[in-house]
Design a binder for these strands. Structure first.
Lengths: 346, 346
DNA sequence: TTGTACGCGTTATCAT
DNA sequence: ATGATAACGCGTACAA
């Protein structure tokens, strides 16, 4: 059996409670006994038992992180390691541990969350996605369990603490970038329509084109998963239109990569014949060919701030609701080019 | 305060211990009382408190996962989400939760592990990397704490349960593939020399070339981080040699991607002038240009089996030491080509 | 300043 | 088949 607070107490000739107070560094303990106790702790190699502490405290110092459905490939998106890095850093900083929850179906995920919450395994939860009509989110609100979402809640935005980019503006700017280059036929290739981020970016795109009098065409809107396989289908559909687009706003770098590939196979040059701007600025956007013009959304900060905020919430229950916006920045590389006539004629 | 076992006991008119037995589905409880108790549980919305259970059981039903140093970009390698997916699935399956540990420096990582172990936060640990002289590994062995490593331990291989590919053979086969295509000048671009996987693959490479009488040249061995920035340097060095290689064995797809890019910038065609075979078969190897010939190491299985094994170990302490080898498979795409004279003459 | 005693929610042992 | 009771290791109100 491991060494406990009682063993330390015996060696130091004090009561267990005194040892406990030394651990908490209570000011009501004399320096002398503190030293004595600390020596005993070191001598015995004492380490506090977190489980016991949690039970006594009703607090675990653990944060739950809920990932979206790990439907095989979605998960390979480097977005996740990157948020995790931000989360880890912030958590580690405040001595919190991270518990991960995944599942392939929505019910499995909800199940995991219920385990975490009801089982009192975690003090708070970080939701790594935001979609319409999400059961997990509903469950958390209903049970008044502390949580933050990375992304923007679909409804009750003002009542839920969340950390997000201004995706509306980001997409608007990205689209305007293309417009400034002379493009008029701009298509939008987004991820799942259930994701709020897709909705926001679509709205930003729409605003930008409407602002300059370009009509919004349904045929120019393609929704696919945030993945490369999706990209291939999407692009083929678009190019078969009577008036094919000369530029694309793509919701994710990985998807853009797939599109780049498809275009290459079709013998269409980027940015020669089609310009592309995408989102996330993943590592791989630098090494794609050509390197992607991509909106950096500061994924690390998304995770970091979400965690920091959640810790504030769990450690002070009347922390106000916050809406934190992480700045984005368009990184111009080589997938965009001035519009010219040959594009459509080729 | 949440509903406890006692509340249920009262409602069902039984003792708390009986409720506990019903939860464990003890055969020594009559079906009648079981029904009664279960009804009470449902009525009150009872959920067992995992923390309390852990304290009583001395077991948490949590597995710790230790990632390598999150030195900014290394982490973006999709390898990690993919192992995590395997780990999650296996863990979920057996009702285990996953606790993540990261840190940027080695000491920070060790620190996290010590917290997990001494704090009794986890029942066992999965090490997601294997490098020479690893303090974490040493710590775990010294404390006889249950763990498995994904990869091959540098020493005491027979005494440590681990799940790995046969990287030696995989690299040997990859190299032989190039040899069969007529290549004689084959370079090896590996990741950090401290990683055992790098060492194994290098040995496999060496064996393959020695087998056919090709001398091993130091100048043909380049070590860089498993990253794309690294790739760029590596390739420049190689091509400045008197007798530049006509083929490359590259330790990671992400790195290969960087190399592909660099070569393109230098006006060197792949596979026209240089052939490449790399490892991991990440999603992105399909969408690179040209698509990468890559050895699929079945990352998901690596995580899945490691977790399954670890659970076996923690639930039955005299489980024997195991060495599990996950099969690999070379996926031939378009980065390799028959050697011909023009390659060197161009 | 320090010690005593109880509670946190379970499980397990020993009775009955 | 079930109930009392004592752990598990720690925190804390209350007492001294």
């Amino acid at each position: 059996m491991a060494v406990t607070i009682k063993d330390v107490a015996k060696v130091a000739n004090v009561a267990p409670s005194t040892v406990s107070r030394v651990i908490a560094n209570s000011p009501r303990i004399s320096e002398k006994t503190k030293r004595k106790v600390r020596e005993a702790m070191k001598e015995l190699g004492y380490h506090p038992n977190f489980i016991a502490r949690s039970l006594a405290n009703q607090s675990t110092k653990v944060l739950g992180v809920v990932m979206p459905g790990a439907v095989d490939k979605t998960f390979q998106n480097p977005f996740f390691p990157e948020v995790l890095r931000g989360i880890s850093t912030a958590a580690h900083h405040k001595q919190y541990a991270i518990q991960l929850s995944t599942g392939v179906t929505d019910d499995e995920i909800l199940d995991g969350v219920i385990q975490m919450v009801q089982g009192k395994r975690v003090d708070g939860i970080i939701l790594l996605y935001s979609k319409v009509e999400d059961k997990v989110l509903k469950y958390l609100v209903k049970n008044k369990f502390p949580f933050v979402v990375v992304g923007k809640p679909f409804t009750h935005e003002e009542e839920i603490t969340h950390v997000d980019n201004d995706n509306y503006r980001a997409a608007k700017e990205a689209t305007e970038h293309l417009i400034k280059l002379g493009h008029h036929s701009i298509a939008f290739v987004g991820g799942s329509v259930n994701l709020v981020v897709t909705i926001d970016r679509l709205l930003g795109y729409e605003k930008a084109i409407r602002n300059v009098g370009i009509p919004f065409k349904d045929e120019y809107i393609v929704h696919e998963e945030f993945l490369k396989e999706g990209g291939q289908e999407a692009i083929r559909e678009l190019l078969s239109l009577d008036e094919p687009p000369t530029a694309l706003v793509v919701a994710d770098d990985l998807m853009a990569l797939g599109i780049l590939n498809t275009l290459h196979e079709m013998g269409i040059s980027v940015p020669g014949q089609i310009s592309i701007v995408s989102f996330n600025n993943l590592l791989l956007s630098e090494v794609s060919r050509p390197p992607l013009t991509s909106v950096d959304i500061n994924i690390y900060q998304l995770g970091f701030q979400a965690t920091k905020t959640l810790i504030d919430i769990v450690s002070d229950s009347d922390e106000p609701i916050k809406r934190i916006t992480i700045p984005h920045k368009m990184i111009v590389r080589q997938t965009c080019q001035q519009f010219n006539k040959e594009m459509v004629e080729s």
